[in-house]
């Protein structure tokens, strides 16, 4: 994977709004963002109601994913361009999710809604009418998804990358600062995890930094590219952003996203937790 196959610019997007076989998909938790104006022709996927099982804490299964994409009029051979707010957090999460279920050609719009807005590019409130398709998904590709036991086994052995803000990593905050801080789980980070906030991979306008800047960022933070890597955050979408950088832009072969992330790990009984700004060790 590389920038050429994983990312499109806002200029490219604006020129290809009506190109057959190209489908724009907005992914936001805040569905009012789409309803208040979106990129012309784009359909909407709601990460919480469309991509999460509504009973268990897990993803929709293969059949549900097939039904979702069929209903949105997305075909197996379509080029899917994902974008959203929050510096593309949820779009990156959806990108990882599309890869998990084996979609062939999926890309992120560099900068997402923010770059589109700051460039003063056009929005519409018109909802497109795409005929339903008959989408076929693959079984989940578990080479890009980590579970809690994988994380515990990785302590001190593989790269663990905590992409939350430094204050969340250290345990001074329990959630991103736009959310109330009262939470059930313990504060801190997985022992031996390095802290590389997702935001360091992005420019102020939400676009990704250059490959050279990104390589320097992770190398300076101590990422050992000869080892496997697991990225995590609080619920798995900021770490999708970092998974995208490492696996899709820089082409690192073995990178997993831990979607359970801190809301699961910080609630587990008996696992080690480190407080403070240093990675810490398994011994505590």
């Amino acid at each position: 994977m590389s920038r050429d196959t994983a990312l499109v610019t806002a200029d490219w997007a604006e020129k290809n709004l009506e190109t057959p076989g190209v489908v724009f998909v907005e992914v936001d938790e805040d569905t009012t963002a789409y309803d208040g104006g979106h990129i012309p022709g784009a359909v909407k996927i709601d990460w919480k109601t469309d991509l999460q099982d509504q009973v268990r804490r897990d993803f929709v299964n293969k059949q549900q994913f097939e039904a979702l994409l069929s209903a949105r009029g997305i075909a197996n051979d379509d080029t899917v361009i994902l974008y959203g707010g929050n510096n593309n957090w949820f779009a990156a999460y959806a990108y990882w999710y599309f890869k998990l279920y084996g979609h062939g050609d999926v890309r992120l719009l560099d900068g997402g809604r923010k770059k589109w807005e700051l460039d003063a590019r056009p929005y519409t409130k018109d909802v497109p009418n795409r005929p339903a398709t008959s989408y076929t998904a693959q079984d989940q590709d578990l080479s890009i998804r980590a579970f809690r036991d994988d994380v515990v086994k990785a302590i001190g052995v593989q790269n663990l990358v905590d992409v939350r803000s430094p204050d969340e990593y250290a345990g001074r905050l329990l959630a991103p600062a736009h959310l109330p801080q009262e939470q059930a789980q313990r504060a801190g980070h997985v022992p031996t995890a390095i802290s590389v906030p997702w935001s360091k991979a992005a420019n102020e306008d939400g676009t990704f930094k250059t490959d050279d800047e990104l390589k320097e960022l992770y190398s300076a933070a101590g990422l050992d590219t000869s080892k496997e890597t697991i990225a995590y955050c609080r619920i798995g979408e900021r770490s999708s952003h970092t998974w995208f950088v490492l696996h899709e832009l820089l082409g690192e072969p073995s990178v997993k996203n831990y979607d359970g992330s801190w809301t699961e790990y910080g609630s587990l009984v008996g696992v080690p937790v480190t407080l403070g700004d240093e990675p810490g060790s398994l011994e505590g």
Partner: peptide
Amino acid sequence: MTVTSCAAPDQAAPIPAS
């Protein structure tokens, strides 16, 4: 759903009573 999002809530809404 017990998992709250990392996305920002409605900025126009009053601060929740909780």
